[in-house]
Computed example of a mutant assay.
Amino acid sequence: MSGHDELSERQRSLMTFIEEYFDVNGRPPTNREIGNGLGIPSTGHVDYHLKALEKKGFISRAQRTSRGIRVLTSLRATLDEAVTALQGVPIMGTIAAGAPWEVTNTPDDVLDVNPQTFGARAFALRVKGKSMIEDGILDGDYVIIDPFEGQPKMRDIIVATNTAAGEHGAATLKRFFKEDKRIRLQPANSEMDPIFVSARDWDRHWQVQGRLAAVIRMYDAN
């Protein structure tokens, strides 16, 4: 098992933020900058995940300094190793177009499309369920996801993960709506109900993995 397998969704987002922040600014971020960048309101919550990353050997931290983070094992390097032999967009498991579905952390196959079309960080998921059929996303399709950090735009079709559910979290594919004191994850199926998440729970337990970039459907002659 690679070090990448050992990280939760939240810990992976912290590692990605730390590495990208260092690339842009030439120095590590503070706990508060990490919290602001990832929408984590509590610096104590940030510190909790940094301690986990430190314990797993991904970072070290100097004491009594706000910018004491040092990357020991690059998350991007572990991802690159996982897909080195693959040509295409890595398939990272199954996404629920219905009730949230447990996700995986490592690619189990590759979708034969040009990865340069969607960017180096794009990944694919198999669709399970019928909650997005009115947007033309059917059970058995593949969706290609463009990862990003921060808040999505209204009506974006996103992959949202409830990090409090399951070992690796439970993910769902829905349209995003920000309402008064809550988030609505809206299916594109008039027979199905939306998922409502309080603003507090959204900030504490949910993470946006990316927005929909493309839908791929395989032709079945049978």
Score class of each variant (00 low, 15 high):
residue 172 T to G: 06
residue 61 R to A: 04
residue 161 T to E: 03
residue 166 G to W: 02
residue 69 I to N: 10
residue 192 M to F: 07
residue 124 A to Y: 01
residue 182 R to K: 14
residue 198 S to N: 08
residue 108 D to R: 09
residue 89 V to A: 05
residue 69 I to F: 09
residue 122 A to E: 08
residue 210 G to P: 04
residue 172 T to K: 03
residue 41 P to M: 07
residue 158 I to V: 14
residue 70 R to F: 08
residue 78 T to A: 10
residue 84 T to F: 13
residue 80 D to R: 15
residue 173 L to K: 02
residue 143 V to S: 07
residue 52 A to M: 14
residue 100 P to K: 07
residue 5 D to M: 11
residue 175 R to K: 14
residue 206 W to E: 02
residue 89 V to H: 02
residue 87 Q to W: 08
residue 1 M to K: 13
residue 127 V to I: 02
residue 200 R to T: 13
residue 190 S to Q: 10
residue 103 V to F: 00
residue 214 A to I: 05
residue 217 R to Q: 05
residue 154 M to I: 08
residue 166 G to V: 02
residue 90 P to N: 12
residue 142 Y to E: 09
residue 87 Q to L: 08
residue 53 L to D: 04
residue 68 G to H: 02
residue 57 G to Y: 02
residue 180 D to V: 12
residue 195 I to F: 05
residue 54 E to N: 12
residue 25 N to V: 06
residue 67 R to D: 14
residue 154 M to H: 11
residue 183 I to T: 01
residue 212 L to V: 06
residue 35 G to F: 08
residue 174 K to S: 01
residue 183 I to W: 06
residue 5 D to F: 12
residue 144 I to W: 06
residue 139 D to Q: 05
residue 90 P to T: 12
residue 162 N to H: 06
residue 137 I to F: 09
residue 4 H to R: 15
residue 7 L to H: 08
residue 14 L to F: 11
residue 191 E to T: 13
residue 117 T to W: 14
residue 134 E to K: 13
residue 207 Q to T: 12
residue 130 K to R: 11
residue 204 R to W: 01
residue 62 A to Y: 11
residue 38 L to M: 11
residue 201 D to Q: 14
residue 11 Q to G: 05
residue 158 I to E: 04
residue 3 G to P: 03
residue 188 A to N: 07
residue 58 F to E: 10
residue 71 V to T: 10
residue 218 M to Q: 15
residue 190 S to E: 10
residue 31 N to S: 13
residue 182 R to Q: 14
residue 125 L to F: 04
residue 121 R to M: 10
residue 25 N to T: 06
residue 180 D to P: 01
residue 28 P to D: 12
residue 202 W to M: 06
residue 119 G to F: 03
residue 189 N to R: 07
residue 93 G to K: 10
residue 147 P to H: 09
residue 185 L to Q: 00
residue 106 T to L: 14
